[in-house]
Nucleic acid binder design. Structure first.
Lengths: 148, 148
DNA sequence: ATAATAATGAAAATCATTATCAACTATCAT
DNA sequence: ATGATAGTTGATAATGATTTTCATTATTAT
């Protein structure tokens, strides 16, 4: 699906080592559908690298989140989900979450319109609440096509 | 701060019993600042009703969430937070989350503007993804006044 | 009242996630 | 190359939030 090459340098530049477990986990994140849970990452990684433990998966996911290579989400089912960030930061997207089956749809349509709206709103909120905003998330909850 | 009377009937109508623990927990939610965690609800309830156990607090919070009397949020610090819903559904608000100290600010300014925007967006998304949207959440993450 | 059913408290169990620790490995200066 | 240093790892134990279990108690309809 995607390739994780660009991440390697990014890790290095921040002073972290590019080890084989980290590569394996990055590849799993790049080559699989999105919003994987830690356990899903572990199981997928385990196929090709049975030696890699769950603790390492968690550690690596946290590290990659710190560095900004992946992003951590919470869709309300009790486990965190992780998504590879786009190489250039421009592929920002939001989520539709099905409250019945848990399916998650990423959308990035209508982003132009949103971008302007969010920008204005951020400016107003920052001013009123003296809050330095550096990111946002928008979630829509409802029923997906299959679950209606 | 607020009073929880209107909730009682709502519980009954759905076929649940209005017991003293439930009343106590509802009162705590109504009379305290928002976005309380389960443990905070437990501790506050414990003051006036020392007999009420943590399990009952969790059970009641889940029940109230099901019924729609309260709403469950996840701000990313590992514990769920609960907020009493407004009696009329019009008091919808969004959140500013401080990524350093965890402080949460509810805002409901600019909602007119948001309302129109969200409505349009929902219409477009529903159509494109055949998704029946029934709620949404917007979070802004950043640094609060004190933490900057 | 009384039976039928729902709700409760205490404790144990579960689940995701994090910390611990000894063994291992990449990196850098020599 | 080599060895010292600090970063990483896997296995396991520990943690913290939430849920389940089960015997007991309270509430409702009869």
């Amino acid at each position: 699906m995607r390739e994780a090459g660009w991440c390697y340098g990014k890790l290095r530049r921040k002073g972290f080592r590019l080890t084989s477990p980290r590569q394996a986990i990055l590849d799993v994140l790049a080559q699989n559908p999105r919003h994987l849970s830690a356990e899903e990452v572990f199981l997928l990684t385990h196929k090709s690298h049975p030696g890699i433990g769950l603790a390492t998966v968690y550690r690596t996911l946290n590290l990659l989140t710190q560095v900004g290579i992946i992003r951590k989400f919470d869709f309300g089912d009790g486990r965190s989900r992780y998504e590879l960030t786009a190489e250039e930061e421009e592929e920002h997207h939001h989520h539709l979450v099905c409250i019945r089956c848990g399916r998650i749809i990423n959308y990035s349509d209508f982003m132009e319109k949103e971008k302007k709206f969010i920008k204005d709103l951020e400016a107003e909120l920052s001013k009123k609440y003296q809050f330095k905003i550096n990111s946002h998330q928008i979630y829509f909850y409802g029923l997906c096509k299959e679950c209606q």
